[in-house]
């Protein structure tokens, strides 16, 4: 490229010198001037191609740099890969020290256990155990009783829900302007805090507490407490089953009742037989008497048998009269 350019330059210079010489000799020639112009044009083209050449060279340089950078990156990546691979290999070859015995279980075991214990491990929705998870600072307890104290008239739901907006129509009956303003200020400051009564309605779990362990009542009503009671009352709890005892007692009572019932029935039966016996004897006596009477009647026409019976009742009447 340099040679090419040098030749062009030389040509221009030569043409120029020849032209100047010819001018100096006062013999200018048009042909020489034309030569110079052609040489100049040639030079211009050569310079353009030089520019192109240099641009290309610069581009090649840039591309080379890029290639070098990419090569370096590739090398880097391969290096990292290699070290990672080494690391991974090292990790996998590490054997975990067993921290204790391992037990087999199935997913369904796990799930059924989780379902069984969930009621004791997760508080019901809305129960926060008094924790406040909002970003706002913990609400002071003062305003709530204050609002409650103002009576139901001030606690229309509208007033509460619009709270911060402050609807004067739902505000407390204005006994004095100052009081109304003060109360509105309270409501505004507690814009996100519902009054106590509404909290209960919105969240039934409000204020209730959830424990992840058996509460005192559970323990007191349990088998251990029953054991202690037996022990305190002097019974050896070993082999003693209150339910069994209860059942035994009931059975005994039942047996006793049945025995009594049987005895009663027997007594009644005996009574009945006795009564029948007496009635039979009475009937026989009566028959004997009738026979006797008939026998006498046939001899002397004595009183009718019915009178005999009435005479018996008549004796009873006599007794009543005596009393």
């Amino acid at each position: 490229m340099d040679k090419h350019l040098d030749a062009r330059f030389e040509r221009v210079e030569k043409a120029l010198t020849t032209l100047i010489d010819s001018i100096a000799k006062y013999n200018p020639s048009e042909k020489l001037a034309d030569d110079l112009i052609t040489a100049d044009k040639d030079l211009l083209t050569s310079l353009r191609s030089l520019e192109h050449h240099q641009n290309n060279a610069a581009r090649i340089e840039a591309l080379r740099q890029e290639t070098a950078a990419l090569d370096a990156q590739t090398k880097d990546i391969i290096g990292t890969l290699w070290s990672i691979r080494k690391e991974v290999k090292n990790t996998t070859t590490t054997s975990y020290p067993s921290t204790g015995p391992k037990y087999q279980f199935t997913t369904s075991d796990l799930l059924s256990y989780a379902r069984r214990i969930s009621r004791n491990t997760l508080p019901p929705p809305g129960v926060t155990n008094g924790l406040d998870f909002g970003a706002s600072p913990p609400p002071t307890e003062l305003p709530a009783p204050d609002e409650a104290g103002r009576g139901s008239a001030t606690q229309t739901p509208n007033a509460s829900f619009n709270g911060g907006v402050g609807t004067p129509g739902a505000a407390p009956t204005p006994s004095a302007n100052g009081e109304v303003l003060a109360s509105q200020a309270t409501v505004t400051s507690q814009a996100t805090e519902l009054p106590m009564q509404l909290k209960q309605v919105v969240n039934p779990g409000e204020g209730s507490v959830f424990y992840a362990w058996p509460i005192e009542g559970d323990v007191r009503g349990g088998g251990l407490a029953g054991y202690q009671q037996l022990f305190d009352s002097g019974i050896d709890p070993k082999g003693y089953d209150p339910e069994e005892e209860e059942r035994r007692k009931k059975e005994e009572e039942q047996a006793k009742k049945e025995a009594e019932e049987r005895a009663r029935l027997e007594r009644e039966e005996a009574d009945r037989r006795m009564r029948e016996e007496q009635a039979r004897m009475a009937r026989e006596r009566e028959r004997d008497r009738q026979l006797e009477a008939e026998r006498r009647g046939s001899v002397a026409g004595g009183p009718k048998p019915t009178n005999q019976q009435f005479s018996f009742l008549g004796m009873d009447d006599d007794d009543d009269d005596d009393e």
Partner: peptide, 9 residues
Amino acid sequence: SNEPKYGGY
């Protein structure tokens, strides 16, 4: 079922 019982438990 033949576990001894203590106070019913």
